[in-house]
Design a protein around this nucleic acid. Structure first.
Lengths: 190, 190
DNA sequence: ACGACATCCTAGCAATGCTTGGCATTCTGT
DNA sequence: ACAGAATGCCAAGCATTGCTAGGATGTCGT
């Protein structure tokens, strides 16, 4: 095990991340339909087969982008929650607002995380920690004594996802989003 | 204008619908990724270009399937709502239950309506009446005096859509769906 | 210095959505 | 009744997609 192979390893890891960020940037600037393996290869200045030496296929690349997205989302939600004191309506409102903000400001990333087909395992022990962490930010907005707080979090999350996706695709008008958010939080926290 | 051209017109309309139902059946039995223009053409026993003489492209075919879906959804929701007396929690509960039932029992159709890219115009004057009708079933569950019942309906719909799509893709466990539904309806109706 | 190995690219495959060109058949005007 | 126009339809082809095979080039340990 020479230092040279270590350097190779480093370079390889670096290139791995390069592919992921290139895919993400391309998606964010031109949409996922513009992310083809050819364009992506060109962007990272390697040939197509190199992509496949790093990932099992295009879906795996999307999954990797999504995974990064979950990490960012978790951090974003955490910041929001900690801006409000303790569990309660204020915390939930902050987290929900941050969630919608994330979805509208990074639509391509959000798509990778929640809409596009990915290789990620969700409802299992293989659930990525980042996804669990993001979800927990919702859970932690409710009283720890509340036996059903996980369920509450699931419903809240579902509602936000629906609002994000339906308004982004123009199925509901986007303007009253804030008002919808207010109504949702008010009702959920009785 | 001979009767012959009328017959032609009829046959053409018939074939139009044939394409739509063939696309839907194919999607429902093997998923939308199996719906290719070639397989679809083979199924209706015409050549590919015939599809394009009826529709502007594949997306337009998906849109047509979705449109049929909205009609069915509206009828399904209406039946549910009328099984409960007047506006109120019971009506809303029935409609919400029917919505989730529709989504889980016709996943491919639901996908065409809400997830796949389509040509349909939503938040405009060109909104298909069937979609508006389905939406109104939610609105009619709330008190007519309620100034914000449209907003309530939007939030309810969003939550249901989120629950449907997140549980279908395995992002939240599917079992407690009924419990989530109960919680949602209870909170929304104060 | 040389064989073994890793790295990377050119070229190609099958499948996809969509279009072109031309062949029948049918309709229309005289 | 019949030539020319219009229509309906299909075989074949185009460009693009995700993905892979095979070989060229360089690197490593000995």
């Amino acid at each position: 095990m020479s230092t040279i192979s270590e350097r190779r390893e480093r370079e390889r890891a670096h290139r791995h991340q390069l592919i992921i960020t290139a895919a993400r940037e391309l998606a964010e600037s031109e949409g996922w339909e513009a992310v083809t393996t050819r364009r992506l290869a060109e962007r990272v200045e390697y040939s197509q087969p190199v992509l496949y030496s790093h990932f099992n296929g295009k879906d795996a690349i999307v999954s990797a982008v999504a995974l990064d997205g979950f990490t960012e989302l978790a951090a974003h939600l955490r910041r929001a929650r900690q801006s409000a004191p303790g569990p309660g309506q204020a915390a939930l409102r902050a987290v929900c607002h941050a969630y919608l903000e994330f979805a509208t400001e990074r639509p391509a990333l959000y798509q990778a995380m929640f809409i596009l087909p990915t290789d990620l395992k969700f409802a299992s022990s293989e659930t990525p920690p980042a996804l669990r962490a993001a979800f927990d930010e919702f859970v932690d907005c409710f009283d720890p004594d509340n036996r059903r707080r996980e369920l509450y979090a699931e419903v809240t999350w579902s509602a936000l996802h629906g609002m994000a996706v339906l308004s982004d695709s123009g199925r509901i008008p986007p303007e009253p989003q804030e008002e919808r958010l207010d109504f949702l939080v008010t009702q959920i926290t009785r």
